[in-house]
Design a protein around this nucleic acid. Structure first.
Lengths: 331, 331
DNA sequence: CATGCAAATGTAAGCGCTTTCAAATATGTT
DNA sequence: AACATATTTGAAAGCGCTTACATTTGCATG
């Protein structure tokens, strides 16, 4: 592998000049630039990124921490991040937090030990304080799906409340009056926000909030089934069910079917996230699209701007849209 | 950040000695080792991986190239690889090939430019010759789901033929005699192998191979629907359909339902891969489990053994098992 | 107690690049 | 033409580590 030294010799200039043409960060006369560039192609020169990193103390890599590598939700996000960063020649290192605080922290350590220039994080267990503290260090931290006031310039988030509102509003607009809600776990902010949206939509439509129509799962498919069963035993006085996420919606659908209920004839169901499997469900699930791929890209752009001095248009705030499929009946 | 130099000063030894205790690759007396280790914890020392890489010309990172980052199939594989490599302190860089030869090659270039110590590859478009040629270079190349004679020590693969056989055999054992097959694209070896397995199972059971019961899709869900429709128009003389993968099975199921056919009452369906959404389908899909996560781990172990001189038990060959759910009827 | 040898440690030269600072060259001004 | 100034280039010192080689130490042997 040719080194910068050989290039400089071939071009008849100094190391420094070659470095300048590689990095385009200092004036080089057109003539010399050309000589150097030609020497580079002749020698098939390719900069040694490791040496660059050591000398410049920039690793040109950004660490991404997600809960799971094998999840449609995070898959989309990772894909968005990789696409954006790759095209800027940056390397991305993914790590999984596996939904435990311990592993999440270890992963952050791991990423830090690899000298990432920035961290993009979307995890659930690590407390806010820790992240704020972390972000005071050298390595900037970007958050997806969490809004923390002290880091607001580095947060990318979606309006979960609006999502809950839109899901519920859709059911109302389709003529439903008795709308149950299958809520996500209390410790997740997004779950609570989505519930608030549900409440706002009801209120706006002049429908009383009925505690007995609310059940609470843990975002897993199984809990969707369980909670639907509990709800249905408690009351059958609802024609639609809004769910905190698609997994629980799927669980609820299965349970409903097992109870002999046709969907959407007997009960309409709305999910949240528009996970890739939503269209594999039967009937295909009407849900709220979570633009997680876009948010991943946006986080990447934030990094590109702040860490690598690029200039992308950015946006921190996203609004979710409803995707209509076949799981809601017009009454 | 403390450097090795500060550690050496604190411990009263030379740089070289500190390096030795870090790398555990040369004899250091217990006393000095202890001194150095203590100095390290006192200073909160953490080796600079970049400097290590430059000096040792090992990057301690392995590149992984998959078709898509956001796919349940590759997700499982990536997860397996990351788990294994992470616990060995190695970094993994994922890149997506997006199913085009051009991007796949660019990704390989990208990974190479980041000085990966090894490449783990699972892609479809890049021709065998290219990979064989590539593997002659400095960086060893490991292949998942491809068997190439010249690289056989670096291949991890599953018996696709056996999978096709087992799927078909299962249908036969359940009493089906007229079994259709929805095949994957011709240019994919695994698709052809699975078809062969189907044929062998028929032959073994003394059932004639009937060309008119075969349709060919492209592994996408949509093609599953299309091809089912074509098949059903052509003949209704089948009670079971074995599919080349789960996506097509899902498409076929949808189309069947749209045609008013109950599954599995009217038609039994078997998938292939046991993708995560297989259990979200209705009815839940009986399918062939593709141990792709295990294969990912195994590829990682191969790398650990050959590149990083570790000693893991390895295996190159995997057999797929059938997972029984609810999409097949006993006749 | 000298001798030899193995084990432990130290010295110093890189790894391939970036970057500061100084030197050289070009450009403009009077 | 002489000078001031701006632009381009080069020399050299690192970045933090590994490793070949040299040196020192410890210990058994005769």
């Amino acid at each position: 592998m040719a080194t910068i030294y050989e290039v400089s010799k071939a071009a008849g200039v100094s190391l420094a000049t070659v470095s300048r043409v590689i990095n385009k960060n200092a004036a080089v006369s057109p003539k010399t630039r050309e000589k150097v560039e030609q020497a580079m192609v002749e020698l098939g020169y390719r900069p040694n990124t490791i040496a660059q990193s050591l000398a410049s103390s920039k690793s040109n890599s950004v660490g991404v921490l997600v809960s799971e590598l094998d999840s449609p939700f995070f898959g989309e996000m990772m894909s968005g991040i990789e696409t954006e960063l790759r095209s800027a020649g940056k390397q991305v290192i993914f790590a999984a937090g596996h939904n435990t605080e311990k592993v999440e922290k270890e992963s952050i350590e791991f990423l830090l030990s690899r000298f990432c220039d920035a961290l993009i994080i979307h995890i659930e267990q690590t407390p806010n304080d820790y992240l704020v503290e972390l972000s005071k260090g050298k390595v900037p931290v970007y958050l997806i799906n969490r809004y923390l006031e002290p880091l607001k310039q580095r947060c990318v988030y979606m309006n979960n409340e609006l999502g809950g509102y839109r899901a519920t509003k859709f059911a109302i607009d389709k003529g439903h009056k008795n709308i149950a809600y299958l809520c996500g776990p209390e410790y997740k902010d997004d779950a609570m926000e989505r519930l608030k949206g549900y409440q706002r939509a009801l209120e706006e439509a002049g429908i009383d909030y009925d505690e007995s129509l609310i059940v609470k799962g843990d975002y897993s498919e199984r809990s969707g089934s369980e909670q639907f069963s509990i709800l249905y035993q408690r009351t059958q006085n609802f024609s639609a069910l809004v769910c905190g996420n698609d997994e629980m919606a799927s669980g609820a659908m299965k349970e409903a079917r097992d109870l002999g209920l046709d969907i959407p004839r007997a009960i309409s169901i709305i999910g949240f996230d528009n996970t890739s499997f939503a269209k594999y469900l039967y009937p295909q699930l009407t849900t709220i699209d979570n633009p997680v791929g876009e948010m991943g890209k946006m986080a990447a752009k934030l990094v590109l701007n702040e860490v690598y001095e690029q200039k992308h248009l950015v946006q921190h705030y996203f609004e979710p849209e409803l995707v209509e499929r076949s799981s809601v009946l017009t009454v």
